[in-house]
Design a protein around this nucleic acid. Sequence first.
DNA 1: GCTTTACATTGACGTTACGTCAACGTTTAT
DNA 2: ATAAACGTTGACGTAACGTCAATGTAAAGC
Lengths: 253, 253
Amino acid sequence: MEYTVQQLAKLAGVTSRTLRYYDEIGLLKPARAHASGYRIYGSKEVDQLQQILFYRELGVDLETIKQIITSPSFDDVQALKQHREKLLAERRRLEALIANVEKTILAKEGRIIMSDKEKFEAFKQQLIDENERKYGKEIREKYGDEQVNKSNEKVKNMTQAQYEEATKLGEEVLRVLHEAFLTGDPAGELAQKVAELHRQWLGYFWDHYSREAHAGLAQMYVDDERFKAYYDQKQSGMAEFLRDAIFIYTGKK
Amino acid sequence: MEYTVQQLAKLAGVTSRTLRYYDEIGLLKPARAHASGYRIYGSKEVDQLQQILFYRELGVDLETIKQIITSPSFDDVQALKQHREKLLAERRRLEALIANVEKTILAKEGRIIMSDKEKFEAFKQQLIDENERKYGKEIREKYGDEQVNKSNEKVKNMTQAQYEEATKLGEEVLRVLHEAFLTGDPAGELAQKVAELHRQWLGYFWDHYSREAHAGLAQMYVDDERFKAYYDQKQSGMAEFLRDAIFIYTGKK
DNA sequence: GCTTTACATTGACGTTACGTCAACGTTTAT
DNA sequence: ATAAACGTTGACGTAACGTCAATGTAAAGC
């Protein structure tokens, strides 16, 4: 089954302009060009476009999508499974927003008290995850400029499965951190487990690990209010605790 | 509680640039300016920003958001309830995408057959609804330029609850249309019920109804492949049938 | 075969919602 | 008083197209 630009655009619910743009940037090339110069797309391109639309739906930028799907190791069934996981996560985020709006309604009706901070909690979760990744990069730039290109490449080539794993690991860090916090001992077994998990989490974003960089990032968690707020979400003081645990783990203290 | 730009930005998980931009376009003005010229935001602005973020989350463009929240009749509790409805709808759309990806996985594993068309179904639903609204406007421009401003205003002020009702009605039109189609009689009772339901649906988007405009739109459904494909989704010929039913309903034939 | 309509191409400017940076004034902490 | 942190305005750049012009090609109608 072959399609011209308009046919495929209609089929997929995009515009012909979009398809031409995708051709132009090398994201989705036609199967071939008709003698007239018209673009002709086939089944392979249909499947590729569907993948692109899933990634787009999940907020991935086109350049990143291009790198993922043009990789020789790209496995479309695996990618579809990853989309599913990510869509489920997105649904959970929506559910948090729904819960937040319901809570806001109660607050407006005077039934509960809601802090200014709580009003924005559901909006911020994804942003904080992204900021955290970004700041990890800044540390890299600070301690090793020659590694930045590799690091950028690594982040861009991260698969959705890896992203999911990283997200889960980040959640686990937070959970175990709280347990360790309750022990009160940053040098204890639990706290050191947190630091180790945190190091594993960094492995998803950093091309090369160094203790110095790890410690530097941990200090940033305390110095930057956004991170501090994130780690203190369960209980105040947890950001400092994590910093201390990591300092001990890395031998800085 | 008062906040400077960075404080509110951090609280809400947006950038100071965003807040300055929102001030510049009149979307979210500070409560006052400090003697230094610094922007100072208060509780009222916090609540406004939360509303803005909900609308933004739901894909509403900033100009539209501005018009909604600056309207004298804006009711924030009512708006929150509408956000909730829309978020629930968005969650249902995500669920359709999840079902679609699961189905695609099955197709890839060779367990079921999936058409090229089915591969894009979940992506297209919202797009078609939006296109339909847009074309309704074009008809208005064609038959009555002096009504366009009112019509634009109506669409922009449509509440989320109204949008949901319109969506449901659109679905009912399609369902009853198929039943009527099976009777084969565009002048029959069922077909005329479809035309009436369609007219009601138009009431959500048009400030003023005219039979001429209705008939013109119906003809467009047959002439424009995108609408034709939409109405023919259940069975080929349904777009023409709807056109005929509306022509009879409006007295054009 | 010729004409008209529909479809496709490339090129280019415009849009929305910011991101980024420069230059410089103001506030806070030491 | 000084340095660091924060704020301002102004301005250019970006991603992902939307829109339109000029022109060639394919398909339908006569």
